[in-house]
Design a protein around this nucleic acid. Structure first.
Length: 494
RNA sequence: GGGUCGAUAGCUCAAUCGGUAGAGCAGUUGACUUUUAAUCAAUUGGUUCUGGGUUCGAGUCCCAGUCGGCCUACCA
Protein backbone atom coordinates (compact mmCIF):
# COMPACT_ATOMS: atom_id res chain seq x y z
CA UNK A 1 0.00 0.00 0.00
CA UNK A 2 3.03 2.22 0.28
CA UNK A 3 4.18 1.46 -3.24
CA UNK A 4 4.32 5.13 -4.07
CA UNK A 5 6.90 5.58 -1.31
CA UNK A 6 9.34 2.98 -2.61
CA UNK A 7 10.59 3.49 -6.10
CA UNK A 8 11.57 0.14 -7.62
CA UNK A 9 14.37 1.84 -9.54
CA UNK A 10 15.95 3.37 -6.43
CA UNK A 11 19.57 2.24 -6.41
CA UNK A 12 20.87 4.65 -3.77
CA UNK A 13 21.72 1.75 -1.43
CA UNK A 14 23.77 -0.05 -4.08
CA UNK A 15 27.07 1.77 -4.32
CA UNK A 16 28.22 -0.26 -7.28
CA UNK A 17 25.07 0.56 -9.23
CA UNK A 18 25.24 4.24 -8.27
CA UNK A 19 28.78 4.47 -9.61
CA UNK A 20 27.90 2.67 -12.82
CA UNK A 21 25.11 5.13 -13.34
CA UNK A 22 27.51 8.03 -12.82
CA UNK A 23 29.84 6.48 -15.38
CA UNK A 24 27.01 6.25 -17.90
CA UNK A 25 26.08 9.88 -17.24
CA UNK A 26 29.67 10.92 -17.89
CA UNK A 27 29.73 8.98 -21.14
CA UNK A 28 26.40 10.45 -22.15
CA UNK A 29 27.95 13.88 -21.61
CA UNK A 30 30.77 12.92 -23.98
CA UNK A 31 33.50 12.13 -21.45
CA UNK A 32 35.17 8.72 -21.27
CA UNK A 33 36.98 8.61 -17.94
CA UNK A 34 39.03 5.61 -19.01
CA UNK A 35 40.49 7.37 -22.04
CA UNK A 36 41.43 10.69 -20.47
CA UNK A 37 45.08 11.66 -20.29
CA UNK A 38 47.04 13.71 -17.75
CA UNK A 39 50.74 14.41 -17.32
CA UNK A 40 51.61 14.78 -13.66
CA UNK A 41 54.77 16.78 -12.98
CA UNK A 42 55.16 15.75 -9.35
CA UNK A 43 54.45 12.86 -7.04
CA UNK A 44 52.70 13.94 -3.87
CA UNK A 45 55.83 14.10 -1.71
CA UNK A 46 57.72 15.98 -4.44
CA UNK A 47 54.90 18.50 -4.69
CA UNK A 48 54.89 19.05 -0.92
CA UNK A 49 58.65 19.60 -1.05
CA UNK A 50 58.26 22.08 -3.90
CA UNK A 51 56.24 24.50 -1.77
CA UNK A 52 58.16 27.68 -1.02
CA UNK A 53 57.50 28.68 2.58
CA UNK A 54 55.51 31.90 2.88
CA UNK A 55 54.88 32.17 -0.84
CA UNK A 56 51.40 30.85 -1.39
CA UNK A 57 50.37 30.13 -4.97
CA UNK A 58 53.89 30.76 -6.29
CA UNK A 59 54.50 27.20 -7.50
CA UNK A 60 52.32 25.32 -9.96
CA UNK A 61 52.20 21.52 -9.94
CA UNK A 62 50.27 18.75 -11.63
CA UNK A 63 49.55 15.71 -9.51
CA UNK A 64 47.50 12.58 -10.07
CA UNK A 65 46.11 9.92 -7.79
CA UNK A 66 43.16 8.23 -6.20
CA UNK A 67 40.67 10.24 -4.14
CA UNK A 68 40.78 8.81 -0.62
CA UNK A 69 39.01 11.42 1.50
CA UNK A 70 36.64 14.26 0.84
CA UNK A 71 35.31 17.14 2.94
CA UNK A 72 32.62 18.96 1.05
CA UNK A 73 31.60 22.45 2.19
CA UNK A 74 29.17 23.28 -0.54
CA UNK A 75 30.90 25.70 -2.84
CA UNK A 76 34.37 24.43 -1.98
CA UNK A 77 35.83 21.19 -0.80
CA UNK A 78 39.00 19.51 0.33
CA UNK A 79 39.91 16.15 -1.11
CA UNK A 80 43.01 14.08 -0.59
CA UNK A 81 44.57 11.92 -3.27
CA UNK A 82 46.92 8.98 -2.85
CA UNK A 83 49.86 8.19 -5.09
CA UNK A 84 53.02 6.11 -4.80
CA UNK A 85 54.69 8.64 -2.51
CA UNK A 86 51.77 9.26 -0.20
CA UNK A 87 48.85 11.62 0.16
CA UNK A 88 48.39 15.25 -0.86
CA UNK A 89 45.45 17.51 -0.20
CA UNK A 90 43.63 19.42 -2.92
CA UNK A 91 41.40 22.44 -2.41
CA UNK A 92 38.73 22.79 -5.03
CA UNK A 93 36.76 26.05 -5.14
CA UNK A 94 33.78 26.67 -7.33
CA UNK A 95 34.88 30.14 -8.36
CA UNK A 96 38.37 28.94 -9.27
CA UNK A 97 37.52 25.73 -11.05
CA UNK A 98 34.51 27.18 -12.84
CA UNK A 99 30.73 27.13 -12.73
CA UNK A 100 30.52 24.33 -15.28
CA UNK A 101 33.27 22.04 -13.93
CA UNK A 102 32.40 22.27 -10.24
CA UNK A 103 29.10 20.35 -10.18
CA UNK A 104 30.77 17.50 -12.08
CA UNK A 105 33.61 17.45 -9.57
CA UNK A 106 31.06 17.14 -6.78
CA UNK A 107 29.79 13.93 -8.36
CA UNK A 108 33.20 12.22 -8.19
CA UNK A 109 33.46 9.32 -5.78
CA UNK A 110 36.03 8.19 -3.27
CA UNK A 111 38.29 5.83 -5.18
CA UNK A 112 38.23 7.70 -8.49
CA UNK A 113 41.56 8.63 -10.07
CA UNK A 114 41.99 12.28 -11.01
CA UNK A 115 44.72 14.53 -12.30
CA UNK A 116 44.85 18.10 -10.97
CA UNK A 117 46.87 21.17 -11.84
CA UNK A 118 47.10 24.06 -9.41
CA UNK A 119 49.24 26.16 -7.13
CA UNK A 120 50.66 25.25 -3.75
CA UNK A 121 49.59 27.09 -0.61
CA UNK A 122 49.43 26.48 3.11
CA UNK A 123 45.97 26.26 4.65
CA UNK A 124 44.81 27.99 7.79
CA UNK A 125 45.52 24.79 9.70
CA UNK A 126 48.98 24.48 8.22
CA UNK A 127 48.74 21.79 5.54
CA UNK A 128 50.43 22.37 2.20
CA UNK A 129 47.67 21.96 -0.37
CA UNK A 130 47.13 22.21 -4.12
CA UNK A 131 44.67 24.94 -5.05
CA UNK A 132 43.08 23.23 -8.03
CA UNK A 133 42.69 25.25 -11.21
CA UNK A 134 41.48 22.33 -13.27
CA UNK A 135 40.99 18.62 -12.94
CA UNK A 136 40.53 15.55 -15.11
CA UNK A 137 38.86 12.30 -14.15
CA UNK A 138 41.21 9.64 -15.49
CA UNK A 139 39.69 6.44 -14.11
CA UNK A 140 36.34 5.79 -12.49
CA UNK A 141 36.15 3.45 -9.52
CA UNK A 142 33.01 1.34 -9.70
CA UNK A 143 33.36 -0.16 -6.24
CA UNK A 144 33.57 1.68 -2.91
CA UNK A 145 36.71 1.84 -0.78
CA UNK A 146 36.87 0.19 2.65
CA UNK A 147 36.17 2.41 5.63
CA UNK A 148 38.47 5.41 5.92
CA UNK A 149 39.28 5.33 9.61
CA UNK A 150 39.52 1.67 10.56
CA UNK A 151 40.75 0.60 7.15
CA UNK A 152 40.52 -3.02 6.15
CA UNK A 153 41.24 -5.43 9.00
CA UNK A 154 39.94 -8.80 7.84
CA UNK A 155 43.20 -10.69 7.15
CA UNK A 156 41.57 -12.87 4.55
CA UNK A 157 40.43 -9.91 2.49
CA UNK A 158 43.67 -7.98 3.06
CA UNK A 159 45.66 -10.78 1.45
CA UNK A 160 43.23 -11.76 -1.30
CA UNK A 161 42.63 -8.15 -2.28
CA UNK A 162 46.03 -6.73 -1.35
CA UNK A 163 45.38 -3.66 -3.50
CA UNK A 164 42.67 -2.58 -1.05
CA UNK A 165 45.03 -3.11 1.86
CA UNK A 166 47.62 -0.95 0.10
CA UNK A 167 45.11 1.81 -0.54
CA UNK A 168 43.71 2.12 2.97
CA UNK A 169 46.43 0.77 5.30
CA UNK A 170 49.48 3.01 5.28
CA UNK A 171 51.37 0.51 7.39
CA UNK A 172 51.06 -2.19 4.73
CA UNK A 173 51.90 0.31 2.00
CA UNK A 174 55.07 1.39 3.80
CA UNK A 175 56.18 -2.08 4.81
CA UNK A 176 55.88 -3.57 1.34
CA UNK A 177 57.55 -0.56 -0.21
CA UNK A 178 60.38 -0.96 2.28
CA UNK A 179 60.76 -4.53 1.10
CA UNK A 180 61.15 -3.34 -2.47
CA UNK A 181 63.79 -0.85 -1.40
CA UNK A 182 65.68 -3.43 0.63
CA UNK A 183 65.83 -5.84 -2.32
CA UNK A 184 66.91 -3.05 -4.62
CA UNK A 185 69.61 -2.01 -2.16
CA UNK A 186 70.95 -5.55 -1.89
CA UNK A 187 71.41 -5.62 -5.67
CA UNK A 188 73.21 -2.30 -5.69
CA UNK A 189 75.40 -3.30 -2.74
CA UNK A 190 76.52 -6.54 -4.39
CA UNK A 191 76.98 -5.04 -7.84
CA UNK A 192 79.21 -2.38 -6.29
CA UNK A 193 81.39 -5.27 -5.07
CA UNK A 194 81.65 -6.84 -8.53
CA UNK A 195 79.04 -9.53 -8.03
CA UNK A 196 77.11 -10.61 -11.13
CA UNK A 197 73.39 -11.27 -10.86
CA UNK A 198 72.47 -14.46 -12.68
CA UNK A 199 69.26 -16.44 -13.19
CA UNK A 200 69.25 -20.20 -12.80
CA UNK A 201 66.49 -22.72 -13.56
CA UNK A 202 63.33 -22.98 -11.52
CA UNK A 203 62.34 -26.16 -13.34
CA UNK A 204 64.81 -28.85 -12.39
CA UNK A 205 65.14 -32.61 -12.70
CA UNK A 206 66.61 -32.97 -9.22
CA UNK A 207 65.75 -30.56 -6.41
CA UNK A 208 69.07 -30.05 -4.64
CA UNK A 209 70.75 -27.78 -2.16
CA UNK A 210 68.27 -28.40 0.66
CA UNK A 211 66.20 -31.21 2.10
CA UNK A 212 62.66 -30.04 1.51
CA UNK A 213 59.75 -31.64 -0.30
CA UNK A 214 59.46 -30.11 -3.78
CA UNK A 215 56.47 -29.25 -5.93
CA UNK A 216 56.17 -31.57 -8.92
CA UNK A 217 55.17 -30.62 -12.42
CA UNK A 218 55.30 -31.94 -15.95
CA UNK A 219 56.57 -30.61 -19.26
CA UNK A 220 54.27 -31.73 -22.04
CA UNK A 221 56.48 -31.35 -25.12
CA UNK A 222 59.43 -33.12 -23.51
CA UNK A 223 57.10 -35.48 -21.66
CA UNK A 224 59.24 -35.33 -18.54
CA UNK A 225 58.52 -34.57 -14.92
CA UNK A 226 60.19 -31.61 -13.28
CA UNK A 227 60.36 -30.30 -9.75
CA UNK A 228 60.40 -26.63 -8.78
CA UNK A 229 63.68 -25.64 -7.15
CA UNK A 230 64.00 -25.70 -3.38
CA UNK A 231 67.26 -23.73 -3.31
CA UNK A 232 69.59 -21.84 -5.61
CA UNK A 233 72.82 -23.35 -4.43
CA UNK A 234 73.89 -26.04 -6.86
CA UNK A 235 73.37 -24.04 -10.05
CA UNK A 236 75.12 -20.97 -8.63
CA UNK A 237 78.16 -23.06 -7.74
CA UNK A 238 78.25 -24.26 -11.34
CA UNK A 239 78.80 -20.59 -12.20
CA UNK A 240 81.95 -20.62 -10.06
CA UNK A 241 83.11 -23.61 -12.10
CA UNK A 242 82.31 -21.62 -15.21
CA UNK A 243 84.60 -18.80 -14.16
CA UNK A 244 82.14 -16.26 -12.78
CA UNK A 245 83.99 -15.58 -9.53
CA UNK A 246 81.30 -13.54 -7.77
CA UNK A 247 77.68 -14.36 -8.44
CA UNK A 248 74.36 -13.91 -6.74
CA UNK A 249 70.72 -14.61 -7.39
CA UNK A 250 67.61 -13.23 -5.75
CA UNK A 251 64.97 -15.74 -6.59
CA UNK A 252 61.89 -17.64 -5.63
CA UNK A 253 62.20 -21.03 -3.98
CA UNK A 254 59.29 -23.44 -3.60
CA UNK A 255 58.78 -25.92 -0.82
CA UNK A 256 55.80 -28.21 -0.62
CA UNK A 257 55.42 -28.06 3.14
CA UNK A 258 53.29 -26.54 5.84
CA UNK A 259 52.23 -22.90 5.86
CA UNK A 260 52.77 -20.88 9.00
CA UNK A 261 53.59 -17.45 10.35
CA UNK A 262 57.17 -18.08 9.16
CA UNK A 263 56.59 -20.25 6.08
CA UNK A 264 55.09 -19.52 2.68
CA UNK A 265 55.20 -22.21 -0.06
CA UNK A 266 57.06 -19.78 -2.31
CA UNK A 267 59.61 -17.50 -0.76
CA UNK A 268 62.53 -15.38 -1.85
CA UNK A 269 66.16 -16.24 -1.21
CA UNK A 270 69.34 -14.36 -1.82
CA UNK A 271 72.34 -16.58 -2.37
CA UNK A 272 75.83 -15.18 -2.87
CA UNK A 273 79.01 -17.03 -3.86
CA UNK A 274 82.47 -15.50 -3.86
CA UNK A 275 85.53 -17.37 -5.13
CA UNK A 276 88.68 -17.25 -3.02
CA UNK A 277 86.64 -16.25 0.02
CA UNK A 278 85.37 -18.47 2.83
CA UNK A 279 82.89 -18.42 5.68
CA UNK A 280 84.90 -15.75 7.47
CA UNK A 281 84.77 -13.55 4.40
CA UNK A 282 81.02 -14.05 4.34
CA UNK A 283 80.81 -12.77 7.91
CA UNK A 284 82.25 -9.46 6.81
CA UNK A 285 80.03 -9.36 3.72
CA UNK A 286 76.74 -10.07 5.49
CA UNK A 287 77.52 -7.67 8.32
CA UNK A 288 78.41 -4.90 5.87
CA UNK A 289 75.29 -5.67 3.85
CA UNK A 290 72.86 -5.57 6.78
CA UNK A 291 74.46 -2.48 8.26
CA UNK A 292 74.25 -0.81 4.87
CA UNK A 293 70.54 -1.63 4.62
CA UNK A 294 69.98 -0.21 8.10
CA UNK A 295 71.81 3.00 7.38
CA UNK A 296 70.59 3.62 3.84
CA UNK A 297 67.05 2.24 3.82
CA UNK A 298 65.83 2.19 7.40
CA UNK A 299 67.76 5.25 8.58
CA UNK A 300 68.63 3.57 11.87
CA UNK A 301 70.75 0.74 13.21
CA UNK A 302 68.42 0.12 16.13
CA UNK A 303 65.40 -2.07 15.45
CA UNK A 304 62.83 -2.87 18.13
CA UNK A 305 62.18 -6.57 18.64
CA UNK A 306 58.58 -7.24 19.63
CA UNK A 307 59.08 -10.74 21.04
CA UNK A 308 61.66 -9.78 23.66
CA UNK A 309 61.08 -6.06 24.09
CA UNK A 310 64.77 -5.64 23.37
CA UNK A 311 66.23 -3.24 20.86
CA UNK A 312 68.41 -4.94 18.27
CA UNK A 313 71.64 -3.03 17.66
CA UNK A 314 73.06 -3.64 14.19
CA UNK A 315 75.98 -1.21 14.52
CA UNK A 316 79.43 -2.19 15.78
CA UNK A 317 80.85 -5.68 16.03
CA UNK A 318 78.63 -8.71 16.33
CA UNK A 319 78.89 -11.63 18.74
CA UNK A 320 80.60 -14.75 17.50
CA UNK A 321 80.34 -18.03 19.37
CA UNK A 322 80.93 -21.68 18.44
CA UNK A 323 77.87 -23.93 18.39
CA UNK A 324 79.51 -26.38 20.78
CA UNK A 325 80.18 -23.65 23.35
CA UNK A 326 76.51 -22.67 23.34
CA UNK A 327 75.46 -26.29 23.85
CA UNK A 328 77.97 -26.89 26.63
CA UNK A 329 76.83 -23.74 28.36
CA UNK A 330 73.12 -24.51 28.05
CA UNK A 331 73.52 -28.10 29.25
CA UNK A 332 76.04 -27.03 31.88
CA UNK A 333 78.17 -29.95 30.72
CA UNK A 334 81.71 -29.42 29.39
CA UNK A 335 81.75 -33.01 28.23
CA UNK A 336 78.38 -32.96 26.42
CA UNK A 337 79.75 -34.14 23.09
CA UNK A 338 81.38 -37.17 24.70
CA UNK A 339 78.15 -38.29 26.40
CA UNK A 340 76.32 -41.39 25.29
CA UNK A 341 73.09 -40.93 23.33
CA UNK A 342 70.96 -42.04 26.30
CA UNK A 343 72.57 -39.46 28.55
CA UNK A 344 71.97 -36.73 25.97
CA UNK A 345 68.35 -37.73 25.56
CA UNK A 346 67.77 -37.77 29.32
CA UNK A 347 69.36 -34.36 29.79
CA UNK A 348 67.44 -32.88 26.86
CA UNK A 349 64.15 -34.10 28.35
CA UNK A 350 65.20 -32.72 31.71
CA UNK A 351 65.66 -29.34 30.03
CA UNK A 352 62.15 -29.55 28.63
CA UNK A 353 62.81 -30.75 25.08
CA UNK A 354 60.72 -33.27 23.25
CA UNK A 355 63.03 -36.11 22.19
CA UNK A 356 62.03 -38.56 19.49
CA UNK A 357 63.47 -42.05 20.12
CA UNK A 358 64.31 -42.31 16.41
CA UNK A 359 66.62 -39.33 16.55
CA UNK A 360 70.36 -39.42 15.99
CA UNK A 361 72.57 -37.83 18.63
CA UNK A 362 73.10 -34.65 16.60
CA UNK A 363 69.34 -34.25 16.30
CA UNK A 364 68.94 -34.32 20.07
CA UNK A 365 71.68 -31.72 20.42
CA UNK A 366 70.20 -29.60 17.68
CA UNK A 367 66.78 -29.69 19.35
CA UNK A 368 68.40 -28.04 22.36
CA UNK A 369 69.91 -25.45 20.07
CA UNK A 370 66.77 -24.61 18.12
CA UNK A 371 64.32 -24.71 21.05
CA UNK A 372 66.36 -23.44 23.98
CA UNK A 373 69.20 -21.35 22.56
CA UNK A 374 68.30 -19.85 19.20
CA UNK A 375 65.10 -18.07 20.34
CA UNK A 376 67.11 -16.15 22.94
CA UNK A 377 69.80 -14.89 20.56
CA UNK A 378 68.26 -11.50 19.96
CA UNK A 379 71.32 -9.41 19.16
CA UNK A 380 73.13 -10.31 15.90
CA UNK A 381 75.14 -13.44 16.64
CA UNK A 382 77.35 -15.58 14.42
CA UNK A 383 76.98 -19.14 15.63
CA UNK A 384 79.99 -20.91 14.09
CA UNK A 385 81.16 -24.46 13.47
CA UNK A 386 77.92 -26.38 13.36
CA UNK A 387 78.09 -30.20 13.54
CA UNK A 388 79.03 -31.85 10.26
CA UNK A 389 75.69 -33.64 9.97
CA UNK A 390 73.81 -30.35 9.56
CA UNK A 391 75.10 -29.27 6.14
CA UNK A 392 76.52 -31.63 3.52
CA UNK A 393 77.69 -28.84 1.22
CA UNK A 394 80.25 -27.22 3.52
CA UNK A 395 83.89 -27.94 4.28
CA UNK A 396 84.96 -29.73 7.44
CA UNK A 397 87.04 -27.79 9.91
CA UNK A 398 90.69 -28.87 9.80
CA UNK A 399 91.25 -28.81 13.56
CA UNK A 400 87.96 -30.42 14.56
CA UNK A 401 86.60 -32.66 11.78
CA UNK A 402 83.30 -33.13 13.63
CA UNK A 403 82.31 -29.58 12.76
CA UNK A 404 82.05 -27.42 9.65
CA UNK A 405 83.58 -24.14 8.60
CA UNK A 406 80.23 -22.43 8.59
CA UNK A 407 78.21 -19.93 10.52
CA UNK A 408 74.55 -19.31 11.09
CA UNK A 409 73.70 -15.66 11.67
CA UNK A 410 70.93 -15.39 14.26
CA UNK A 411 69.09 -12.13 14.85
CA UNK A 412 65.92 -11.64 16.83
CA UNK A 413 65.82 -15.37 17.57
CA UNK A 414 65.57 -16.19 13.86
CA UNK A 415 68.02 -17.77 11.45
CA UNK A 416 68.79 -14.93 9.09
CA UNK A 417 71.82 -16.05 7.12
CA UNK A 418 73.74 -19.30 6.92
CA UNK A 419 77.16 -19.21 5.25
CA UNK A 420 79.76 -21.85 4.41
CA UNK A 421 83.22 -22.40 3.25
CA UNK A 422 81.91 -24.28 0.26
CA UNK A 423 82.84 -27.87 -0.31
CA UNK A 424 84.78 -28.11 -3.58
CA UNK A 425 86.31 -31.59 -3.28
CA UNK A 426 84.16 -33.67 -5.64
CA UNK A 427 84.91 -36.94 -3.92
CA UNK A 428 84.05 -35.66 -0.45
CA UNK A 429 80.94 -34.03 -1.87
CA UNK A 430 79.85 -37.27 -3.54
CA UNK A 431 80.34 -39.18 -0.31
CA UNK A 432 78.29 -36.63 1.61
CA UNK A 433 75.48 -36.79 -0.97
CA UNK A 434 75.44 -40.58 -0.93
CA UNK A 435 75.31 -40.69 2.83
CA UNK A 436 72.53 -38.13 2.94
CA UNK A 437 70.45 -39.65 0.15
CA UNK A 438 70.40 -43.08 1.80
CA UNK A 439 67.76 -45.13 -0.01
CA UNK A 440 67.03 -42.31 -2.43
CA UNK A 441 70.24 -42.27 -4.48
CA UNK A 442 68.29 -41.06 -7.52
CA UNK A 443 68.03 -37.69 -5.79
CA UNK A 444 71.77 -37.08 -6.17
CA UNK A 445 72.63 -34.34 -8.64
CA UNK A 446 75.36 -36.13 -10.62
CA UNK A 447 75.67 -33.28 -13.08
CA UNK A 448 76.70 -31.06 -10.20
CA UNK A 449 79.34 -33.58 -9.10
CA UNK A 450 80.68 -33.69 -12.66
CA UNK A 451 80.94 -29.90 -12.55
CA UNK A 452 82.97 -30.11 -9.34
CA UNK A 453 85.31 -32.60 -11.02
CA UNK A 454 86.10 -29.89 -13.55
CA UNK A 455 87.36 -27.82 -10.62
CA UNK A 456 85.59 -25.22 -8.51
CA UNK A 457 87.64 -22.51 -6.87
CA UNK A 458 87.47 -22.35 -3.09
CA UNK A 459 84.62 -20.05 -2.18
CA UNK A 460 82.48 -18.60 0.52
CA UNK A 461 78.73 -18.83 0.08
CA UNK A 462 75.91 -17.16 1.96
CA UNK A 463 72.13 -17.15 1.85
CA UNK A 464 69.51 -14.82 3.23
CA UNK A 465 65.80 -15.51 3.40
CA UNK A 466 64.56 -12.16 2.15
CA UNK A 467 61.07 -12.57 3.61
CA UNK A 468 62.36 -13.28 7.09
CA UNK A 469 64.89 -10.48 6.83
CA UNK A 470 62.07 -8.07 5.99
CA UNK A 471 59.99 -9.44 8.89
CA UNK A 472 62.90 -8.66 11.18
CA UNK A 473 63.67 -5.23 9.79
CA UNK A 474 60.07 -4.01 9.62
CA UNK A 475 58.79 -5.56 12.84
CA UNK A 476 56.17 -7.55 10.93
CA UNK A 477 54.32 -10.29 12.78
CA UNK A 478 53.97 -12.73 9.94
CA UNK A 479 55.53 -13.66 6.61
CA UNK A 480 52.12 -12.83 5.12
CA UNK A 481 52.71 -9.19 6.00
CA UNK A 482 55.85 -8.97 3.86
CA UNK A 483 54.66 -10.94 0.81
CA UNK A 484 52.27 -9.11 -1.51
CA UNK A 485 50.17 -12.17 -2.24
CA UNK A 486 50.76 -14.87 0.37
CA UNK A 487 49.41 -18.31 -0.43
CA UNK A 488 45.83 -18.93 0.69
CA UNK A 489 43.36 -21.67 0.01
CA UNK A 490 41.25 -20.71 -3.00
CA UNK A 491 37.92 -19.18 -2.11
CA UNK A 492 34.92 -21.48 -2.30
CA UNK A 493 32.48 -20.99 -5.17
CA UNK A 494 29.76 -18.61 -4.12
C1' G B 1 47.52 -33.02 9.82
C1' G B 2 45.77 -31.89 15.22
C1' G B 3 43.82 -28.25 18.79
C1' U B 4 41.40 -23.67 19.43
C1' C B 5 38.90 -19.08 18.25
C1' G B 6 36.23 -16.49 14.59
C1' A B 7 32.76 -15.14 10.08
C1' U B 8 26.33 -10.02 11.18
C1' A B 9 25.00 -3.87 5.87
C1' G B 10 30.28 -1.88 0.88
C1' C B 11 33.88 -1.25 5.52
C1' U B 12 34.54 -1.21 11.19
C1' C B 13 31.67 -3.27 14.91
C1' A B 14 27.04 -4.01 18.49
C1' A B 15 22.80 -7.24 19.48
C1' U B 16 21.38 -9.11 27.55
C1' C B 17 18.65 -15.71 29.25
C1' G B 18 16.61 -18.24 22.58
C1' G B 19 11.84 -13.31 21.77
C1' U B 20 10.76 -6.99 16.39
C1' A B 21 18.81 -7.55 13.60
C1' G B 22 21.27 -1.91 15.34
C1' A B 23 25.32 2.04 15.25
C1' G B 24 29.52 4.74 13.02
C1' C B 25 31.80 5.43 8.33
C1' A B 26 30.53 4.96 3.12
C1' G B 27 25.96 5.82 -0.13
C1' U B 28 21.44 8.97 -1.41
C1' U B 29 18.87 14.11 -0.70
C1' G B 30 19.60 18.98 1.30
C1' A B 31 22.68 23.22 3.99
C1' C B 32 27.62 25.20 4.43
C1' U B 33 33.78 28.93 -0.03
C1' U B 34 40.32 27.03 4.61
C1' U B 35 38.48 21.33 6.18
C1' U B 36 41.64 17.51 9.18
C1' A B 37 37.90 10.77 11.36
C1' A B 38 34.83 18.40 9.06
C1' U B 39 29.86 19.75 10.81
C1' C B 40 24.26 19.90 10.61
C1' A B 41 19.29 17.77 8.89
C1' A B 42 16.79 13.74 6.50
C1' U B 43 17.30 8.88 4.46
C1' U B 44 18.36 3.93 1.72
C1' G B 45 20.73 -0.51 2.62
C1' G B 46 20.62 -7.52 5.70
C1' U B 47 20.82 -15.10 2.12
C1' U B 48 23.48 -12.84 10.18
C1' C B 49 29.47 -17.79 5.77
C1' U B 50 26.75 -22.50 3.68
C1' G B 51 23.54 -26.81 4.60
C1' G B 52 20.85 -29.59 8.02
C1' G B 53 18.59 -30.08 13.08
C1' U B 54 16.22 -28.68 18.03
C1' U B 55 12.27 -25.10 19.25
C1' C B 56 5.95 -21.87 19.27
C1' G B 57 10.24 -18.89 17.93
C1' A B 58 17.50 -19.33 16.19
C1' G B 59 22.43 -14.14 14.65
C1' U B 60 22.30 -16.73 19.49
C1' C B 61 21.69 -23.81 20.96
C1' C B 62 23.27 -28.78 18.29
C1' C B 63 25.56 -31.43 13.85
C1' A B 64 28.22 -31.21 9.21
C1' G B 65 30.87 -28.27 5.79
C1' U B 66 33.66 -23.72 3.73
C1' C B 67 37.25 -19.92 4.55
C1' G B 68 40.43 -17.38 7.94
C1' G B 69 43.42 -16.11 12.73
C1' C B 70 46.38 -18.21 16.62
C1' C B 71 48.93 -22.49 18.75
C1' U B 72 51.06 -27.04 17.29
C1' A B 73 53.13 -30.66 13.84
C1' C B 74 56.05 -31.16 9.31
C1' C B 75 60.28 -28.11 7.73
C1' A B 76 68.96 -28.01 6.46
Amino acid sequence: MFDSMSDATDISHDQHAVRRQKLEELRAAGADPFRAHVAPTHFSAQALAAYVEGEDNAVTVSVAGRIVTRRDMGKSQFVKILDQQGIIQLYVKKDVIGEAAYPIFKKLDLGDFIGVTGTLFRTRTGEVTVRAENYTLVAKALRPLPEKFHGLTDPDQRFRQRYLDLIVNAESRDRLMKRARIVSHIRRFLEDRDFLEVETPVLQSVAGGAAARPFETHHNALDVDFVLRISLELYLKRMLVGGYDRVFEIGRNFRNEGISRRHNPEFTMLEVYQAYSDYRGMMVLVKDLLQSICTNILGTTKIPHAGSGEEIEFAGDWHEVPYKDLIREKTDDAGWFERAKEEKAAKARELGCHVDPQWEEFEITNEIFSKLIEPHLIQPTFVTHLPKELCPLAKLNQDDPTVLDVFELIIGGMEIAPAYSEQNDPDVQRAMFEAQAGEEQQKIDHDFLTALEHGMPPAGGMGIGIDRLVILLTGAESIRDVILYPQLRPEAEA
